[in-house]
Write a protein that binds this DNA or RNA. Structure first.
Length: 909
RNA sequence: GCGCGCGUGGCGGAACUGGCAGACGCGCCGGACUUAGGAUCCGGUUCCGAAAGGAUUAGAGGUUCAAGUCCUCUCGCGCGCACCA
């Protein structure tokens, strides 16, 4: 293709306009208090300049892409899909008069750069900087209207200073249950001191640390040998690391955690206040995993201990025929009888040897061992055996269950295998349904004890009654459980943010942690020559002895933060990215985050971040909201997931399949405007869709037709001669030699011409508001197809068309706009800040409309009637039609349905 | 297994609240201009049929004057969760 003749001189046009935008900082977004240069197109459009207040600025629109991790491979054609959508919208919103914030930056901490450093000894910063340069060059070649003055990288000390700052806020805050909000830890300390006088320092510290939103715990964590680090729950998929696919094992280690579980309810509830897709909200809901039920205590026979279980079906308590503890449950050893001791010990060893993968893969085949102990069912004092089994998880609920084999699939399987009794306590409403293994709602049966009976009650009522009874007897209580776990926040890596934490020993020699003051930020990582994790699991930072050991005798924390830390809050830094004194100024935060749609107005990115990034970011945002650093409870008002772009073979693009299409190829062959247009023309933004080189050529031809709509065919030869010219200075000169076509004239448009234009305005405007880019482009094509047939092209009409085109194909539109302005007498104001045209419904009104006529729902004719014809006239005209008559003659007309101005259906028998 | 979403020409996809199914583009067929064209322009293109006409939105049933759109079941595909009591 590159050898064939160009449709139009995009190779001259695109560099020319990118240079103009860059040099004029055309897309700089202005904050309240910024100095707006009088010559800036934004100043001209809004007739403001100099230092302006928030009130003087037009309404804001914050449109954000999920910023990329700059990998060494560069961009393929899948990357710019979301970026193109947001750019089109950013340009559209500018034309609609908004002050648009459209920034870009780099999520630059991450494993690949570190792994490269381990292999070669090259500092990850160098790799990262090179990759950023590649990504930036490619993204810039696509002509997106980003405000590059706000560019950030999470690896920049001026940036991660504030990531560390947020960590300090988490460390120095606790969750106040009564206020349902984070509060400064200082309040808690003062409160505690007033309640308990002369509490020993270590005891006070232990209490406070148990309340901090960032805390240290020695807990079983996912250790990944292959990566030499621990991972968060969210980063472990099917017992393997999400990155690299290495096996993962449970291992107790000292780790930093964030108390996200305190926010479970708010993270769930506030989903109702934001405009995200249902599927995305559902994913978050599932991840948070709220379930209502009850905790019930079972007395252990011959012991003072009780076993507490969580159940969502307290109504089935009478059907509990045995109990199961997780193998890790703390009471297991205590209750196991002498005869069972060996069997239990062997089973526990087997379980710890199993990886999580094996534990889930073998899910179908239940295993377990009897402890020899019994407990009393609190409703009827029946003696039931206590087992251990790995189908009960230590990490959920209380780590113990009451087993109701008749009405729980897993308990049923287990009871069947080990011959445990199965007692029906729920009767399905449909008599044909077998009660064995029936898990739905029904009516309680066989559920009468000495003090309580549930018999005859529907499931919901039975639940209420038994829970109230348990509470009144002190045997249990209503409880809500969440699947969400606290967030494991430390990693044993080099290339991440160091913690602003010191470790010290008190007089008794006990180790404790202490935060560095804010003025010690940023804490920079030390210089290293060896980036490998140490064999003991100690992080690579531990190698830097001089960095770790301070003169005061204290030692630095050597873990680093996970990659999510930097991406958790970057949307806030974009508001005020160069502010050295605050994470964001109050004034800027208020201006950009407030309004009808609070927070980011539109956030576009891949579905791979449906739970991790989006849940973590919402959590941090809520903490910052509680502490009054931000003014909205949610960060992202509207969120759209773009669908993946597949290779031409309909497979996911990957190096190994060899189906990756780098962006550079289409940019070279057909230009950026054609690439942008095709990215959007492929289909709906949210949909997964395959790339097609043929399809790119189709939209490229369309842009060629747009060019020829404005420029005489003859002129083509001139840009052909310019093929070899690469000198940027010459581009404008060569383009200036190309003249507008002679058919373009400053004449009054005809009615059909205005109609074509206004139909296009209407469709493109509505489709952009609804993010339906593909159909908006087809409307532009329809207009051009028609305009090509006009002998005279009124300048006023095609001028407005260029405004409609410019968000999609900005370079071509700017070039034609400039040429047109020279002859049409219209001022040559920057197209990027032109006024979006309004469509006039009056111009779309027809004298005659076409009405389809159906007989018994089948189309038989299409008649023309005057637009103002009433239903009676339309009916008469329909029945008078020559094509209709044969169908009605000799038949009885039972009914005639006339849909006003739409359709006639004649029902005959 | 559970939850969510989706099935429309040879292909990507249109069809807002039920109201002319197949917009727009690709591909294909024919024509014009041309030394030539894989450039451009014009015409055609859901299927069967010479035509009249008939069939058609994964399949089966239902509601309705009217169903791609609403309801029920079945099949297929995609995504998410996955022993969460």
């Amino acid at each position: 293709m590159s050898s064939s003749r160009r449709q139009y001189p995009f190779h001259l046009i695109e560099p020319k306009w990118q240079k103009v935008w860059d040099e004029g900082q055309a897309f700089r977004a202005f904050n309240p208090g910024d100095e707006i240069p009088p010559a800036h197109p934004f100043a001209l459009r809004h007739k403001i300049s100099g230092k302006v207040s928030a009130a003087q600025l037009p309404p804001k629109f914050y449109i954000l892409d999920m910023f990329p991790y700059p990998s060494g491979a560069g961009l393929h054609v899948g990357h710019p899909e979301g970026y193109t959508a947001t750019d089109i919208l950013a340009r559209y919103k500018r034309a609609r008069g908004f002050n648009v914030l459209h920034p870009m930056g780099w999520d630059a901490f991450g494993l690949p750069a570190e792994q490269f450093a381990v292999k070669t000894g090259q500092h990850p910063r160098k790799t990262t900087e090179e990759n950023i340069a590649t990504f930036k060059r490619q993204i810039k070649s696509l002509g997106f209207s980003y405000d590059w003055s706000r560019e950030i990288a999470t690896t920049d000390p001026d940036y991660f200073k504030w990531t560390q700052w947020i960590f300090l806020k988490l460390y120095n805050s606790y969750f106040d249950k009564d206020k349902n909000s984070a509060r400064p830890i200082a309040e808690l300390i003062a409160n505690r001191k007033s309640q308990i006088s002369n509490e020993p320092e270590s005891s006070l510290r232990a209490f406070i640390d148990s309340q901090r939103l960032a805390f240290v715990t020695e807990a079983p964590v996912w250790w990944c040998e292959g990566l030499g680090t621990v991972l968060a729950n969210e980063e472990v998929v099917d017992g393997k690391s999400e990155v690299g696919g290495f096996p993962v094992i449970r291992k107790p280690m000292r780790q930093w955690m964030l108390r996200i579980t305190k926010y479970a309810e708010r993270l769930l509830e506030d989903l109702d206040t934001i405009d995200w897709t249902d599927s995305l909200k559902e994913m978050q809901r599932n991840w948070i995993g709220r379930s209502e039920g009850a905790e019930v205590d079972f007395q252990i026979a011959g012991s003072s201990e009780k076993i507490r279980v969580f159940t969502t079906r307290p109504d089935t308590l009478f059907g509990a025929t045995y109990m199961v503890l997780a193998p890790e449950h703390k009471l297991v050893d205590e209750i196991t009888t002498a005869e069972q001791r060996d069997a239990i010990a062997n089973y526990k060893t087997d379980v710890t040897k199993k990886s999580d993968l094996e534990r889930t893969e073998l899910a179908k085949d239940k295993t377990g061992v009897f402890t020899g102990a019994y407990a009393f069912n609190p409703v009827n004092q029946q003696n039931i055996p206590i087992w251990i089994a790995d189908y009960v998880l230590a990490s959920y609920g209380t780590g113990a269950i009451m087993a109701v084999p008749a009405h729980d699939t897993r308990d049923f399987e287990f009871a069947t295998k080990f011959n445990l009794p199965i007692v029906q306590v729920v009767q399905p409403s449909d008599a044909k349904t077998d009660w064995r293994g029936f898990v739905g709602d029904g009516v309680s049966v066989n559920s009468a004890g000495p003090d309580i009976s549930l018999n005859g009650l529907p499931t919901a009522e039975a639940k209420k009654k038994i829970t109230t009874w348990l509470e009144s007897k002190g045997l249990g209580k209503r409880t809500i459980n969440y699947k969400l776990r606290d967030w494991l926040f430390s990693r044993q890596r080099y290339w991440g943010e160091p913690f602003p934490i010191l470790w010290k020993r008190d007089a008794s020699g006990t180790l404790y942690h202490e935060a560095l003051p804010e003025n010690a930020l940023p804490v920079l990582p030390p210089q290293l020559t060896d980036y490998k994790p140490t064999a003991t699991g100690e992080p690579p930072l531990a190698r830097a002895k001089n960095w770790v050991n301070l003169a005061t005798g204290s030692q630095r924390e050597t873990n680093t933060m996970p990659q999510w830390a930097g991406s958790c809050w970057y949307y806030l830094r974009f508001l005020d990215s160069k502010n050295p004194n605050a994470i964001v100024s109050e004034e800027s935060e208020n201006y950009w985050m407030s309004g009808k749609s609070a927070g980011v107005d539109l956030y576009v990115g891949g579905t791979e971040h449906a739970v991790l990034h989006l849940l973590y970011a919402r959590f941090w945002h809520k903490v910052l909201f509680d502490l009054r650093y931000v003014s909205t409870p949610e960060p992202f008002f509207k969120l759209v997931n773009q669908g993946m772009v597949l290779g031409e073979d309909n497979q996911k693009m990957s190096k190994s399949r060899g189906n990756v299409i780098p962006v550079d190829a289409p940019v070279r062959d057909v230009g950026t405007d054609a690439l942008r247009l095709y990215e959007m023309f492929m289909g709906p933004l949210e949909m997964v869709k395959p790339w097609s080189t043929r399809g790119v050529e189709g939209v490229y031809r369309f842009l060629g037709r747009v060019w020829r709509l404005f420029v005489d065919e003859k002129s083509e030869t001139e840009f052909e001669q310019a093929e070899t010219t690469t000198e940027p200075g010459k581009h404008g000169e060569l383009l200036n030699q190309i003249r507008l076509g002679s058919a373009i004239a400053d004449v009054a448009p005809t009615a059909p011409q205005l109609k074509a234009l206004h139909a296009c305005i209407k469709k493109v405007t509505e489709d952009l508001d609804g993010l339906r880019f593909n159909t908006a482009i087809s409307a532009l094509m329809v207009f051009v197809n028609e305009a090509m047939t006009w002998e005279t092209k009124p300048a006023a009409v095609i001028r407005e068309f260029l405004i409609l085109l410019h968000p999609f194909a900005p370079h071509l539109a700017e070039e034609l706009w400039e040429k047109l302005s020279a002859v049409s007498g219209q001022p040559s104001a920057n197209l990027a800040y032109s006024q979006w045209p309004a469509f006039d419904p009056a111009l779309l009104v027809e004298n005659e409309i076409e009405i389809p006529v159906q007989i018994n729902g089948k189309l038989r004719d299409v008649i023309k009637v005057p637009t103002d014809a009433d239903n009676a006239k339309i009916e008469t005209a329909a029945l008078a039609s020559d094509k209709i008559k044969p169908f009605v003659d000799g038949k009885t007309i039972k009914k005639v349905i006339v849909v006003p101005k739409k359709l006639v259906n004649i029902v005959v028998s």
